[in-house]
């Protein structure tokens, strides 16, 4: 009777599809539609309010009004904003995001390229920061106010008070200029040369990861200490006679991980903002750089597409956060009561 017990543990996919979490995904994705619409209307409207348009930017200050009007007509910029928006929307729902006014390239294709680059950069930064923050926080929480805790606290407070673009410049100065061990700028596609690609990613990813690492370390350390000192189930675990690491990992960390996941999920959307600056500093052809250039040239369709991608990433990040809760927290997975 007790031998067959093990089979009742269900696999993670089985849990996901059979659970309320799966219905939640559908609901969230449907909710994303009005969000996308709202974001696109807002972007279009704001860009329309800014004086100057792509035709003026392309022709420069010397152009005559006739030349500008002619180019505007050619680009379709003389039509009213509302009809231009619906033109764009009609294309967008079929996957056609139009062509860039400036480069004439297909926006969707350009976006795909840039997105891979940005995703690699932020992905590396995120993985590195969490992967380092977890062991450091665990070691610090093992002996609160111990030497390791104090040192890690000092480091993380210092790291938090440095802006990532300042850090980026310092990194360039030290590792690219002074010691010349890593490239300061430039990007080599992964498929072309994986080693060069990663070498080029080290400095920008570090610049993004350090403040994140510091924040995650402080947050997780604080949460772990709260669990260890304030929770009865920790005393139960200690009373079993198990070792301090087992108490920390199996009991405190498991419960603290919910808080960490929330923070990482919320961070993900602000992370996109920091890539705009970092990509410009390191001349990395990512989404942030593309959007910055497009805003300068009033390349409305490209800006529009970038903003939509950012919105999608934010919605997905929140969705993944909630799904992770469902995987980790049985109270949510099975519903309460």
């Amino acid at each position: 009777m007790t031998v067959a017990l093990d089979r009742r543990y269900r696999s993670v996919p089985a849990r996901l599809f059979g659970s309320p979490a799966f219905r939640m995904v559908g609901k969230r994705l449907l909710m994303a539609i009005p969000i996308m619409l709202g974001v696109s209307v807002l972007t279009f409207w704001v860009l329309n309010l800014i004086p100057g348009n792509a035709a003026q930017q392309l022709l420069g200050a010397e152009a005559t009004p006739e030349q500008i009007r002619a180019l505007e007509a050619q680009m379709g910029l003389n039509e009213p904003a509302v009809s231009r928006y619906f033109d764009w929307l009609g294309g967008a729902v079929t996957g056609d995001l139009g062509r860039s006014f400036v480069s004439g390239q297909d926006v969707a294709g350009q976006l795909g390229e840039r997105l891979t680059v940005s995703a690699e950069l932020t992905g590396l930064a995120l993985i590195a920061s969490v992967a380092l923050a977890v062991p450091v926080a665990l070691l610090a929480a093992r002996r609160p106010d111990g030497l390791f805790d104090r040192v890690s606290m000092f480091v993380s407070v210092s790291g938090l008070s440095v802006a990532s673009y300042v850090l980026a410049l310092v990194l360039v100065l030290v590792f690219a200029v002074r010691f010349a061990v890593l490239p300061a700028i430039g990007y080599v596609p992964f498929a072309e040369d994986p080693v060069e690609n990663l070498r080029g990613m080290v400095l920008p990813a570090t610049a993004i990861a350090v403040p994140l690492f510091c924040f995650y370390t402080r947050f997780l350390r604080g949460d772990l200490v709260d669990q260890l000192q304030g929770q009865d189930y920790i005393v139960t675990a200690q009373a079993k006679g198990i070792g301090p690491w087992q108490v920390l990992l199996r009991h405190a960390f498991r419960n603290s991980s919910f808080g960490l996941i929330t923070v990482v999920g919320l961070n993900l959307s602000t992370l996109i903002g920091s890539t705009v600056i970092i990509e410009s500093i390191f001349a990395i052809p990512g989404l942030g750089q593309l959007m910055l250039q497009a805003i300068n040239t009033r390349d409305v369709l490209v800006v529009q597409a970038c903003v939509i991608v950012f919105a999608v990433v934010t919605v997905l990040a929140n969705l993944i956060t909630d799904l992770l809760y469902a995987v980790l927290d049985p109270r949510i997975r099975y519903g309460s009561g």
């Binding site: 189930y233 009373a239 079993k240």
Partner: peptide, 25 residues
Amino acid sequence: MRGWRGAEIAMVFQDPARSLNPTMR
């Protein structure tokens, strides 16, 4: 002390809603 906890002396606490780890079976 760890060898004594649980093996020789064990403890039952006041609030069973809080003394079990909510994330473990």
